[in-house]
Design a protein around this nucleic acid. Structure first.
Lengths: 210, 210, 210, 210
DNA sequence: AATGAATGAGGGTTCATTCAT
DNA sequence: TATGAATGAACCCTCATTCAT
């Protein structure tokens, strides 16, 4: 129990640093944030930061991975898997938008320039985790006969990349000002991809607004 | 004429700086590249850089815009517009891949952290320019009756974002090792989007390769 | 008895710290060795070091004195005093080389920068202790009529200094690669000093080796 | 000439740094002296130090080598070579003492702990330069028949080491308080080495004082 | 226009030391 | 006694920027 408490405190201090860093990175950007800033915001000493992270860059990566995991978690909603596949694309998109809206400020962390190969691996892992979850959802649909077989992994990858970038554009670049628009057309595009009809043949949905 | 020559020399020195900066930014990243490095690579003095750019960040912006323009240019291929629309999606994807492959190293640049809002605007501009070109292509197809009417701008936007990230993943993260795979499925996805059949109905296409 | 045992444990822990420090100072140098390193090597906690030493510098001093005492001890070999003086110079040199060879790594320690005057005094003490032993040996020889009277203290001092530096050069700088050479010529020089003949007169001895 | 002046200024700035560093190293010790201190003392900016030296340690080495060269220079006195050998040992010792006395504060630099191999090489070079000069002097004496042949290099080495350490002890440890004593007995010892008589046989010189 | 030596503010990082447990 | 997490002062070094030539 003593062990546990220590571990808890340890965890909470690490989290405090991450929270402080997140706040500051969002407010001032990475370069403009100093370790001293982070320590002050987290109410700890400068040196303490280095007990939990090896470098400033390490703190950054921690923040970024944190966010990516948060998004991955939104796909793990057990309700999602019990839906008929016709409702899944919309549900997925809804999930991404919800998480992104709630953490709008953090979205810019989805686009990191990854200098070190170690960092790249961390991000790649995170990306693969999400991709795998998506692919699994598609695979189940195929097995249930709701979809024709296709290269689930690659489609998951592409959709994942698209999602990342749409969130970035919608929330980080445009501050969510056109969220509804992005949401609706993202849903439409994904649904069309899975269920058709194609843009050439379909006559109904796609006509109004600017 | 003297004026002109001076201006020419001026232009060429500015370009030399941009070229040097591009090389170094790609090789070492922005933070790790110093003005001294750039000056050395461009065979000029440190001070001279400041005759053509106001700050290091200014040099960076110059380089970034340069690259994005290059990509935008690939869409302006006049041949593209004279193709029947059935061939256009593939041609577009081919164009993106070709430009990206040739400038593989520059791609990672498009994703570099844009903290300041000024830079974000620049990127937004660039993005909008490309998006507009795409939308125009789609609009023409609609006018020629090759496509049903749809929200061309938003679809262009989404496709554009997808393209950016696919290029980044394919060339910057994976070093182009699975280029063929990404290419084929990117084409397939876009074609399916425009021409169907949807994944639920189509039986044939999606079986080959690893 | 409890007192005694505590004191023993105390002694052994202090020694453990000194041993750990010695190893690390030799391997990495004073500046590069941290208190944390020492604690780890000694299998104790950082704070414990401060129960036995007031500061890092204090640990250093402890280590240095330790080494010098070891060398001083080699001169106290009782057999040495019972030898006829003709054999004593060689025996002395042998002793120095033996101790130095065994603790090759520690020798470089004798030369570490002693900036503070307090440390200089400690060194002076240590030096004087060794010098006194040497002078005593010479004094006995004079009393036994084996040597003409001379300024024993100053000669001891000079020889002592020479010894220090020869050991440093031979073992610390050259890693003992030319030990035999240094040994032979050190013996020769000291014997020549005490027994002649001078370099101007002697014809034989100095011809062999590389 | 412009070239020359620049080079001169460059030299003088480097020398200013060395002088400032020397002063401070002597006054406060290496560790306690900061680059900022040195820059202030030299009336330049911190960054400027790094235009002339790669690191703080590099400055230190510069100071040390400077001093060693100064001593080497004292051996190059052309008058020395024209003396009959009987007067050379005393002249050599006189030279060392004169230089050392003039730069008493710097003598402690003769004893550096040399961590990096690069530093060690620099010192080794310096040492070998001095040794070679000494050996050359002896060799000439042998050729002129003033000395019997002997291992000049090794004796030079040993004498050199002895000299270094005597200077260190006399001036750095004892602040020159017993300079006369050290001088006289150093001369006596060296002369006895070269010219005899040995301590066992000689009756004259070595009796008085404490 | 071109130079490049000089600047100096600023930041990441280390690590000896402390103290609550 | 023993611990080791926390502290925070201090320092080396970098490098964008300037300006006298």
């Amino acid at each position: 129990m003593d062990q546990e408490k220590l571990s808890e405190e340890s965890r909470s201090k690490r989290d405090a640093i991450l929270a402080a860093a997140r706040t500051l990175f969002v407010k001032k950007g990475y370069e403009e944030t100093t370790i001293a800033d982070i320590a002050r915001e987290a109410n700890i000493a400068v040196g303490t930061v280095y007990l939990y992270f090896r470098s400033k860059r390490d703190v950054y990566t921690g923040v970024a991975v944190n966010i990516e995991d948060m998004i991955a978690a939104s796909f793990l909603d057990p309700q999602l898997l019990s839906l008929p596949f016709t409702q899944i694309p919309r549900a997925l998109v809804d999930g991404i938008f919800r998480v992104s809206r709630e953490h709008m400020n953090l979205i810019s962390f989805l686009q990191t320039d990854m200098q070190s190969s170690e960092e790249m691996l961390q991000h790649k892992d995170s990306n693969e985790r999400i991709t795998a979850i998506l692919a699994d959802i598609f695979q189940r649909a195929i097995e249930r006969g709701e979809l024709a077989p296709f290269h689930t992994e690659m489609y998951s990858q592409l959709l994942c990349l698209l999602g990342d970038n749409v969130m970035y554009q919608c929330f980080a670049v445009e501050n969510g000002e056109r969220e509804a628009l992005y949401h609706d057309y993202f849903v439409e595009m994904v649904e069309r991809l899975f269920f058709g009809p194609s843009l050439r043949e379909g006559q109904d949905r796609s006509s109004a607004d600017s």
